[in-house]
């Protein structure tokens, strides 16, 4: 019990530390704001062009699609787990040694860091949300139950995705080369998370593929709940499915890490 209290206290401290690291680089905030606004504008004009000659695509109106796309952009940090490049960098620089020397569960420490980082990124998305509302007419859901269902789903989806990325990042212990894998996963995540195209617009077979891998759990699934594309009544089933993803991915990633960590080499003396 004492050990659990101690670990929780450490995790809380790590959680509080990450925002301070974030604040160290204020310039990125402004660059991110400009780039995200441009990206969002491109998507809005693209979807308006798609709907130029039709009222609905895959039973979604233009307004529904735009609401989904804009919310998916605002909550994009849910998919922004950067473990592959992070592991690769720390292995190449030899910094991995200090993470492994901490008297705390390595995966737990990273999860808390990423969760804290997610909170910061979401807070930093507020200006994007304002831009989406004022410039692109985003209509926000108002039902608190919908927001509650979304919050639970988003946390579960993010956690499942974290463990999935952890599993992939452990491959870098064997390859020590991360660029190719990192870019591949980023590209897959961008498309298969549903942040560019709602899942319902994808062909049936692709939807099956997308729902068989965890990317969509962090964006498409929670944002579909938020926009009403998935009815609120289905929320418990959605959560259960996501919980199964979390459990499965946690087991696989933790087991793989135990094996992969034996392969660690620390570069540079």
């Amino acid at each position: 019990m004492r050990a659990l209290r101690r670990d929780l206290s450490i995790y809380l401290s790590i959680f509080g530390m990450t925002p301070k690291v974030f604040m160290a680089y204020q310039l990125w905030f402004w660059i991110g704001l400009v780039l995200n606004t441009i990206g969002m504008a491109i998507l809005v004009f693209f979807w308006r062009a798609v709907y130029a000659d039709t009222d609905s695509v895959a039973a979604l109106s233009l307004q529904q699609t735009l609401t989904y796309i804009l919310l998916a952009q605002i909550f994009f940090p849910l998919t922004d787990v950067d473990l592959i490049f992070d592991f690769g960098f720390n292995l190449r620089e030899g910094n991995i040694i200090h993470f492994l020397l901490r008297p705390i569960n390595f995966q737990g420490m990273y999860y808390v860091q990423n969760l804290s980082s997610l909170m910061m990124r979401l807070i930093l998305q507020i200006p994007i949300a304002v831009v989406a509302t004022l410039l692109f007419g985003l209509q926000w859901p108002t039902d608190p139950a919908t927001w509650g269902a979304f919050a639970v789903s988003a946390l579960l989806g993010f956690t499942a995705l974290f463990f999935f990325h952890w599993f992939l990042a452990c491959l870098t212990f064997y390859t020590t080369e991360v660029w190719g894998l990192g870019v591949l996963i980023f590209g897959m995540s961008l498309f298969l998370s549903g942040s560019l195209v709602p899942l319902t617009m994808m062909p049936g077979w692709l939807q099956t593929v997308v729902l068989s891998i965890p990317f969509a759990q962090a964006i498409a699934v929670p944002v579909s709940l938020l926009t009403g594309i998935t009815p609120l009544i289905q929320a418990p089933l959605v959560w259960l499915t996501q919980l199964a993803w979390v459990t499965g991915m946690w087991l696989v990633s933790a087991l793989f890490f135990r094996v992969a960590v034996r392969k660690v080499t620390v570069q540079g003396g």
Binding site: M17, K20, V21, A24, Y25, E93, G94, N95, I97, H98, L101, R102, P103, G268, G269
Partner: peptide, 18 residues
């Protein structure tokens, strides 16, 4: 790890930005 202290002269265990 709880019982040991380590210094690597060529890398830091401190948080760089803090």
């Amino acid at each position: 790890a709880r019982e040991i202290g380590v210094v690597f002269g060529q890398r830091t265990q401190l948080w760089w930005d803090l």
